[in-house]
Each structure stands twice: as structure tokens, then as C-alpha cells.
């Protein structure tokens, strides 16, 4: 039996969950830069990644403030190890083909937009402020990823097949977004953030509509991987991602860049 967490500890964990999601997904999306199927998509994906990196600076910056140990967003991003990360597993899986990347983006954007909508009425004005600012960016991400999922799902035979494969592969990672734990309960009690489980109906309606238009079938399985939000068990992929991302900071500690 572990000791109950304090509100500040829970708040910090919540902020890490938000910031690590955007950090890791932004990193993954940035891997496409220079390698996309067409120039217009290359530029658009870079915009998405840039938004996510910017959002990371807000969330992790606030996390550092709440933690009160003088850490910057960079310290938090570049100097923690795998077990410290609180992102959902969905964002750390490798990009796969363009279809899987866009499907992952869509599945995340849909959750992200609903979550930020709720956070705009957070009792913490800093959280509400970040949500207000970032929700506009995310509304656009969702519009774009949804259009692409529809276009590719209902495109050629090959694009349809690849999008269905992407959905099948990613679906087991969706459930983690809606799991609630003691940290969430504390956030709900403080009026800071909604209960993740409470977003599910709206989410299902949203993605159900888009995926139907895309002529794609949601897998008939409620199984969900978990471990990212709690930090108990990430995928093997995260360590490799961090090895790249953190290399300079780790190899040359204390340098200014």
C-alpha cells in the first residue's frame, strides 16, 4: 500500500502526462520532415510537430514551476529516463508508413481536442490558459488528420487496406487514454481536469463518424495496452527515441545550446 498522493504531486503527474504526450508525438511527427509523400504534406506535418513542441514547452514549463525545484521544460524533457515518462503508449510507437502516422495522429487529435475543450474550464487558470491557446491548434490538427484518414480510407484499394491495417495495429493503444486512476481522481476533485473515462462517449461518437466516412471498421476488441500514463511499462521504442533526443544533453552535461 503506497501513501496517498498529495494534490501537488497529482498535479505534477497530470502536467507530465499532458506534456510528455505532446513531446513524444511532436518528436515522432518531426521524423517525417524531408521524407513525406508530397511537399505540401511535408510542410503540414512540420506545422503539426511545431505546434506540439510549442505545447510541450507550456506543459513541461508549468510542470517545472509546480514541482518547484527550479527545473526548466528542457531539463524535464532531456534529463529524465524512460520510467519517468508519463505519455500514453500510442504516441511512442514508431511512425510506420504515412497511413499509420496519420491514423495515430487522428486517434490522438480526437482525444486531445476533447480533453483541451474540457480543460478550458479548469479551476487552475494556468491550465485553462494553455488549453485555450492550444485548442485552436489542435482543432486544426484534427480537421486535417480526419480529412486525410477519410481520403485515404476511401481512396484506392491499397490506401484503404493500409489504413485498415493502421487502425487494427493502433486500436489496442486507444483505451489507455480513458483509464482513470488515483491521480485523475485527485484532479477531478480539485476541478483541474476531467475524469478521462468521461471523455469516452464523445470520443467514440467523433471517431465513429469519421471512420465510417472513411469506410474503415473499428476492431471488435476492447483490449487495451497500458502502462504509459502511470510509467509502469512503456514500449521498447521509447528508450530508443530518448537515446536520440537526449544524446547531446547527456553527452555534454551543463553546456548551453
Amino acid at each position: 500500500m503506497t501513501a496517498p498522493i498529495t494534490r501537488d504531486q497529482a498535479f505534477l503527474q497530470f502536467l507530465l502526462r499532458m506534456g510528455d504526450n505532446t513531446l513524444i508525438l511532436g518528436h515522432r511527427v518531426s521524423e517525417w520532415c524531408g521524407h513525406s509523400p508530397v511537399l505540401e504534406e511535408d510542410i503540414a506535418l512540420a506545422n503539426t510537430a511545431l505546434d506540439l513542441i510549442g505545447q510541450t514547452r507550456f506543459w513541461l514549463g508549468l510542470a517545472g514551476e509546480v514541482e518547484g525545484e527550479g527545473k526548466s521544460a528542457d531539463d524535464i524533457a532531456f534529463l529524465r529516463d524512460v520510467w519517468d515518462f508519463r505519455n500514453i503508449l500510442l504516441v511512442e510507437v514508431p511512425n510506420g508508413d504515412f497511413g499509420r502516422t496519420l491514423m495515430r495522429q487522428f486517434l490522438f487529435d480526437a482525444w486531445h481536442s476533447i480533453q483541451l475543450g474540457r480543460l478550458m474550464t479548469s479551476s487552475d487558470s494556468r491550465v485553462a490558459g494553455i488549453a485555450e491557446k492550444t485548442s485552436k491548434e489542435v482543432a486544426y490538427h484534427l480537421e486535417r488528420s480526419a480529412d486525410t484518414v477519410v481520403g485515404l480510407g476511401d481512396g484506392t484499394e491499397e490506401s484503404h487496406r493500409r489504413m485498415q491495417e493502421a487502425l487494427d495495429y493502433l486500436w489496442p493503444y486507444v483505451g489507455e487514454m480513458f483509464q482513470s486512476d488515483a491521480i485523475d481522481a485527485e484532479m477531478v476533485a480539485a476541478g483541474i481536469a476531467p475524469d478521462p473515462a468521461s471523455l469516452r462517449d464523445e470520443y467514440d461518437a467523433l471517431i465513429g463518424r469519421i471512420l465510417a466516412t472513411a469506410t474503415l471498421t473499428i476492431p471488435d476488441s476492447s483490449f487495451g495496452h497500458k502502462g504509459g500514463r502511470s510509467g509502469k511499462m512503456h514500449t521498447e521504442h521509447l528508450g530508443h527515441l530518448l537515446t536520440q533526443m537526449q544524446w547531446l544533453q547527456r553527452a555534454y552535461p551543463g553546456a548551453n545550446w
Binding site: 505540401e40 510542410i43 503540414a44 506545422n47 486544426y140 480537421e143 486535417r144 480529412d147 481520403g151
Partner: peptide
């Protein structure tokens, strides 16, 4: 529709 989105991403950075 995609042309407008692409224009947003390419020409209003």
C-alpha cells in the same frame, strides 16, 4: 478543400 488547408500550411506560416 485540401488546397485551402495546404495554402494555410504553406503560405500563412
Amino acid at each position: 478543400k485540401m488546397a485551402i488547408k495546404n495554402a494555410r500550411d504553406v503560405y500563412t506560416r
